[in-house]
Nucleic acid binder design. Sequence first.
DNA 1: AATTAGCACTCGCCGGGTGAGAGTGCTAAC
DNA 2: GTTAGCACTCTCACCCGGCGAGTGCTAATT
Lengths: 338, 338
Amino acid sequence: MLTKRREQLLRFIVDEYVRSAQPVASSAVVRRYGLPVSSATIRNEMARLEEDGYIVQPHTSAGRIPSDRGYRYYVEALMRPQEPPVAVQQTIRHQFHQAAGETAEWAQLAAAVLAARLSYVSVVTAPHAARPRLRRLQLVSVHDFVALLVLVLNETLVLQHTLMLDRQLSQDELNEVAARLNSLYAGRAVDEIRAMQIEHLSLEAQTVRAALDLMESEGAESFGEAYLEGLREMLREPEFAQGERMLALMELLGRPNLAKAIPLARAGHQEVTAIIGSEHPDDAMQQCSIVISRYGGPSSLRGTISVVGPTRMHYPKAVSMVRYISGIMEELLDAYFG
Amino acid sequence: MLTKRREQLLRFIVDEYVRSAQPVASSAVVRRYGLPVSSATIRNEMARLEEDGYIVQPHTSAGRIPSDRGYRYYVEALMRPQEPPVAVQQTIRHQFHQAAGETAEWAQLAAAVLAARLSYVSVVTAPHAARPRLRRLQLVSVHDFVALLVLVLNETLVLQHTLMLDRQLSQDELNEVAARLNSLYAGRAVDEIRAMQIEHLSLEAQTVRAALDLMESEGAESFGEAYLEGLREMLREPEFAQGERMLALMELLGRPNLAKAIPLARAGHQEVTAIIGSEHPDDAMQQCSIVISRYGGPSSLRGTISVVGPTRMHYPKAVSMVRYISGIMEELLDAYFG
DNA sequence: AATTAGCACTCGCCGGGTGAGAGTGCTAAC
DNA sequence: GTTAGCACTCTCACCCGGCGAGTGCTAATT
């Protein structure tokens, strides 16, 4: 346990380092903090904090910067999350108000807002149903040999897929097929439909296969439908100034690697979780922190919302912003599908 | 007009510089090219080429690199486009074979293939109909107060939009509305529908408004539905090694700026066009070249396919690859909607 | 026991200087 | 028109030394 003064000092070092990206010197503390002590005292305290592993020196005769452990302590015990100002809240609410309808659009908007407000990378996975049920399917004739399969799921998700037909079918015929399949399968989940083991022929079989595929891919949370925003903004941070680091980061946040970079499993529901630097299993992420949260009800539509930034991240802002946006997503889901 | 030998020399300088990214020295020419002349002769010829503006020296006592004019001459008169090897062609065809159906998927695939084969940035706009006609619209009930509007256009494009309803409507009622609107508007283009000036109430009006909006946005070629791929690969090129340039490039190729970066108007149909460095109006693109082509029939579905790379680009590969993929897109469109 | 003034010490950064190497342009000879 | 030879130029990498920032330690003070 840290003394009161050391806590204050650690907090100041984190705040100051986050602000300036420069190691914090003892004299800087006295000057800007205005404590009634001298820099020598601060130096002594700093030595203790370093001994305990909360801060480090990049080299002898430089100021101190927080270690991952220091950030952890800061996030856990020191920082006061700052709610976004009312004006900002209103702006954001307004933005979401405009994008009614598509859940995917909400996710995209959430990513955009988050990136814009924080200047870090945001990754938002679109809401997905853990165990989707078929509400109704519909076949729409598109062309002589092409039909569109539209799937409406219980959780108000609409999926579509183009079908290539063996023979020409009129809309009426398609309607018939759809009606028959609906009477069989409406209201059921993937596993139930599979369990029924009904044999179908030609178009029916093709439709059922496509529908099951779609529902299954919906059931699994994936990064295929994730929205990533703000790479450009984040690359302006001084820690990524060298091309070397930039490339590494881009590599890491590219589609195929995204799953490795962001451990969805660590996202808690309701509460916001931070993963700081070396706490992340992947070596490439040692310089980065993640602030992540799940949104949506436990049973119905769920998704995750996360921010990836340098360990020198503005945690109060990041945490509260993620919490706020996460809350909005929850509200939206509730309002539309509650 | 250049002498035969100077042409050869220019070609070699371009080839070599593209390969090595290093200024080409006179001695290197003799060594690797094996001409029965000495480096002094090459130096004399180089001096002439420089005088005429085809090559430049980064500084005294460095080799030569091609100027934009030099590249232009090379592209116009010197290079022989190399068809992709048969094996590669087959692989690509196979990839496209797998992605049947959605035109947007073709575009995405085209972008991915192009980026993978060339290691430059590829930008492909999805096929869009210049003057789309409504084939049929359909309303699908999704939720109590939510319906999905599905628009099938003559050119086999499917668009969808979620509608928020004022009151609860059954699928039967929705079908009725759709049927009425179809009987009125099927087969017509945006301008025709507008010209009819029919007054509608509530849901009908809402549907028509949404449908017109969708069709209009489809009619305009935009970067909203453009697929961009390969930024990571391209940033490995030595000219972008400094973080400075990387950021500039990313800035430039970000969504809002994409239209400024890629002048779609300069894309010719059938033939592939190159825009080299300073030929581009925007200052930020001086270091880059664009290889661009339009695909699709002149009347029906069209799109553009382009590659953005450093001016030190492998033009033969880029041009022939763009041409090849462009051809495939054309074939696909023909096969499905011809 | 905690604080502080003073001071020596360490280390990164910056500017200049230097030497090697690469490649040219020029001149004079072929 | 071509070529050998050579002086010249420019970059790059390296080293060096001074400067400034900031520390750690010691001894004195409260």
